[in-house]
Design a protein around this nucleic acid. Structure first.
Lengths: 134, 134
DNA sequence: GACAGGTATATGTATAACACATATATAGTA
DNA sequence: TACTATATATGTGTTATACATATACCTGTC
């Protein structure tokens, strides 16, 4: 690898960097659902809180977060209202719906399945390359 | 959830099913790299072997496997040659290059990172919903 | 009062990944 | 002959992603 990019850097956009992406794609969605279950919140704040889920070393796509939130509202998984209290621009505050909670549970089962799959890969990889086991 | 689909079933194609997909997208690529490190093989056989990585319950996209293999050859991570021995149609046999092995190592680090992220999500989810912990 | 910087939401766009369908060919077997 | 398994490949519409840009509000400061 002749590339010092953080994993996930834009290798698909003609940068000729072939580092594999780190994204468990659409993983931002279950994270948002879980965060919103914990607290009513708005996009800008959620972006900070997403860092706790391991999005800290790859810069978050701001646009994606807002789009995912709007999409989830379209689907009825969250609801929003404007919060004009406090300083600064108005915040679109999201809260989870009952359907959103159901989706969160479905996601959890799903993430568990994915986790097992990654673990299987890693076990097999380490068996093949024991010297690389950290 | 009013949907009995296996996770990963085509919810994006107008089926109006909102089950989250299971795909750790592009995960098929590191699996192919690892499989090819273990054995020289061809697409049709690799599809069977992918089942060992947890692609068994979601039907594999045949086209995707062949396309990923060709793409990887373009990039120089694998090389192929026709195998006309044995019965049946000719098989395009792939083997890993040195660069492919390097990519595999990069992927492994990456998958480990993803696994940690999923684990963090699950820990946090289980903390919130202890009664759902299996 | 102008202006910089932090907060906050939103859209534009090109490319890549994806799901699903379809096409083609070889060879064994019922 | 028809059917099935093996094997590779392409077509196509939709979604996801990365990165850029636009807009607006508010506070502090020069």
């Amino acid at each position: 690898m002749d590339c010092k990019h953080q994993p996930g850097a834009g290798w698909r956009n003609g940068h000729h960097c072939h580092c594999p992406g780190t994204r468990v794609e659409r993983f931002v969605q279950p994270c948002l659902l879980l965060l919103l279950h914990e607290n009513v919140s708005h996009g800008y704040e959620l972006m900070d809180r997403l860092a706790e889920f391991g999005f800290d070393h790859e810069p978050i796509d701001v646009g994606a977060v807002y789009r995912v939130l709007r999409k989830m509202e379209e689907e009825g998984w969250v609801e929003s209202s404007w919060d004009t209290t406090g300083a600064g621009p108005a915040r679109r505050c999201y809260r989870l719906t009952a359907e959103g909670v159901e989706l969160l549970h479905a996601w959890a089962a799903n993430v568990e399945h994915s986790r097992r799959r990654l673990e299987h890969f890693l076990n097999r990889y380490r068996q093949t390359f024991p010297q690389r086991t950290s």
